[in-house]
Amino acid sequence: MAGGMNKRGRYGSMADRLARTRGDDVAADPAPAPPPVVKHCWVTTVDGRLPGLLLAWERRSTGWHGRVVHPVADEHGWILADEWLPATLLDALP
């Protein structure tokens, strides 16, 4: 039998056909939300002032904190840290 059970043709997959019989709108899948904007920043740590990527902001009882990915020195060189830091340790790039 040509095509077998996987033949979709112009009718779509079995899931698409079942969705249409239930009244679901197959073509109207919601578009995924765009990712938040990632911004460059400076992070002040014990290793000095280093570049970082600001991923998100959060207001806490102690003030604003930014979720940042930045380099951290260890015994083998540099690793990346992903952490929430107080806004006082973060500066925008010029």
Rank of each mutant, 00 (worst) to 15 (best):
G9T: 09
G9H: 08
G9E: 03
R10Q: 11
Y11K: 14
S13K: 06
S13P: 00
M14K: 14
A15R: 15
A15G: 05
A15N: 07
A15E: 13
D16T: 10
D16H: 11
R17F: 04
R17V: 07
R17G: 05
R17H: 03
A19L: 10
R20L: 15
R20M: 12
T21F: 03
T21C: 05
R22C: 10
G23P: 02
G23M: 04
G23L: 06
G23H: 05
G23V: 05
D24W: 11
D24I: 08
D24Q: 08
D25W: 01
D25L: 11
V26G: 04
V26R: 04
V26T: 12
A27Y: 08
A27M: 11
A27T: 13
A28E: 11
D29E: 15
D29S: 10
D29F: 06
D29G: 08
P30Y: 02
P30G: 02
P30A: 12
P30L: 12
A31V: 12
A31F: 04
A31N: 06
P32V: 09
P32M: 07
A33R: 13
A33V: 10
P34H: 03
P35W: 06
V37R: 13
V38G: 00
K39V: 03
K39P: 00
K39A: 13
H40M: 04
H40Q: 11
H40K: 11
C41P: 05
C41T: 02
W42A: 05
W42G: 02
V43R: 01
V43Q: 01
T44H: 11
T44N: 07
T44C: 05
T44Y: 05
T45P: 05
V46M: 04
V46R: 14
D47V: 00
D47H: 14
D47M: 05
D47I: 00
G48L: 07
R49D: 10
L50P: 00
P51R: 10
P51V: 05
G52T: 01
G52H: 03
L55G: 03
L55M: 14
A56Q: 12
A56I: 01
W57G: 12
W57S: 13
E58C: 10
E58I: 02
R59H: 13
R60I: 00
R60P: 00
R60A: 07
R60V: 06
R60H: 08
S61A: 15
T62K: 13
G63N: 06
G63K: 03
H65N: 11
H65C: 12
V69C: 07
V69K: 09
P71H: 06
P71C: 03
P71K: 04
P71S: 06
V72S: 09
A73Y: 01
A73F: 00
D74I: 04
D74P: 01
D74S: 03
D74M: 01
D74V: 10
E75D: 14
H76E: 11
G77N: 02
G77T: 08
W78S: 08
I79G: 11
L80E: 15
L80M: 13
A81M: 11
D82S: 11
D82R: 09
D82Q: 06
D82F: 00
W84I: 02
W84T: 02
W84H: 08
W84C: 04
W84F: 10
L85E: 08
L85T: 02
A87G: 09
A87M: 03
A87V: 07
T88C: 08
L89P: 00
L90H: 01
L90T: 02
L90G: 04
L90I: 15
A92T: 10
L93R: 07
